[in-house]
Amino acid sequence: MNNLSGQLSLHFTPKREKTRLVNCKQVPPLKAGRALYLDDSNKATVYLVETSGGMVSGDDNQVDVTLDEGSHVCLIPQSALKIYPSTSDRASTLKTTVEVGKNAVLEWLPETTIPFQDAIFHSETNVSLTSESTFFYGEILSSGREKSNESFRYKRVKTAMKIYVDGVCQCFDSTNLNWSEVAPQQIGFFEMASYLGSVWYFSPETDHINLQELLSSFEKSKNHRVGAATLDGGLIHFRWLSNDLCLVKKEMELLRESL
């Protein structure tokens, strides 16, 4: 079977009082819908589609998103990303590059990455912001297909998130999970949870955010926990450890609406 090398390049700029998708390069299986305007603002909402149904060993996807000054964009993945079993030592790879200009706003809503048994998945996300950008990015990593008794049965999952503000690296967050070497339930990984969720948020107004007040509105239990940390430069990282995927998504959406 031939491997797929998907490409999706999206370029947004303000025109005629709306944010317009002025350039869209699509190489299957990656696609994007047309820009939708769901309210009275200039915000463009675009759905992201992976048409193959999932990534197999050796597949390599590249996503590039550029927002010019003054743009406002909301990106919504249409479905969860499935990572199928690796038939060799070749990984399924996803590389994402984001550039958000001055006074631009990017909201990237979360979906779930689901590694199947024996899957190998590597992802890298590089984000460039200015001190006057606003950025909301959510992601959820599943332990696997629970109903198929495949939790933590993947071979390897590696992720890396790098965020630069005015050319200075404010964040390098890396996860490296190897079923044969690491017990994902241990402290610092999934612990006893099935889902690891993250939201990265940056804006010129982060100094005015009351984290304790925000966190107090979220549910807390043995099977659902959320915390937050402010990094140098004003970047805020929210993280969930939970066994309730629907609740994680609900709280991420509530967070987006309240920020």
Rank of each mutant, 00 (worst) to 15 (best):
N243K: 00
S41C: 05
N103G: 03
S41R: 07
F218R: 00
Q185D: 08
V22W: 15
Y195K: 00
N210I: 03
Q185I: 04
Q78V: 13
Q170C: 13
M55I: 02
A229N: 13
M161N: 11
L36H: 14
H11F: 15
R256C: 03
G6K: 02
N23E: 11
K162T: 06
P14N: 06
S79F: 03
R239Y: 01
E253Q: 09
G197E: 02
T19W: 12
P29I: 00
S151T: 12
S79I: 08
E213N: 07
V63C: 07
C74L: 13
V49L: 10
E181D: 12
N42Y: 06
R225A: 03
Q186N: 09
L38W: 02
A193G: 05
F202E: 10
A229I: 01
T230F: 13
L196Y: 07
Q26M: 11
G58S: 04
K220W: 08
E139C: 01
V49H: 11
Y201K: 06
L10K: 05
A35V: 09
K15G: 11
V98Y: 12
Q26A: 04
L231I: 09
I236R: 05
V157I: 04
I83V: 05
T96V: 03
T45C: 11
V127W: 10
D118H: 14
S41H: 01
S133R: 04
Q170S: 15
W200I: 05
A228E: 01
R239M: 03
P28M: 10
C24E: 06
T45V: 14
D59H: 06
L109Y: 11
L106W: 03
F190M: 02
S88G: 10
L21D: 02
C171H: 09
V226L: 00
K43R: 07
N243H: 07
A183R: 10
T113V: 08
N178D: 15
T230Q: 09
V22S: 15
V165N: 00
R153C: 08
G234F: 07
R145T: 13
W108D: 12
L10M: 07
K158R: 15
Q78F: 08
S174V: 12
S57N: 12
V27H: 07
S174H: 09
K250S: 05
N42L: 13
D60L: 14
N3V: 15
D68C: 10
S151F: 10
T13H: 15
S86A: 00
L215P: 03
W108H: 10
G227W: 04
N103H: 10
T130P: 10
G188W: 07
K158N: 15
G6F: 03
R145V: 13
T159A: 04
S174K: 10
V65F: 00
W179D: 14
E146W: 09
T66S: 06
T134P: 11
S92H: 09
F116Y: 11
V100K: 01
E253T: 07
F202N: 02
P115S: 04
N178T: 15
P184M: 07
S142L: 08
R34W: 13
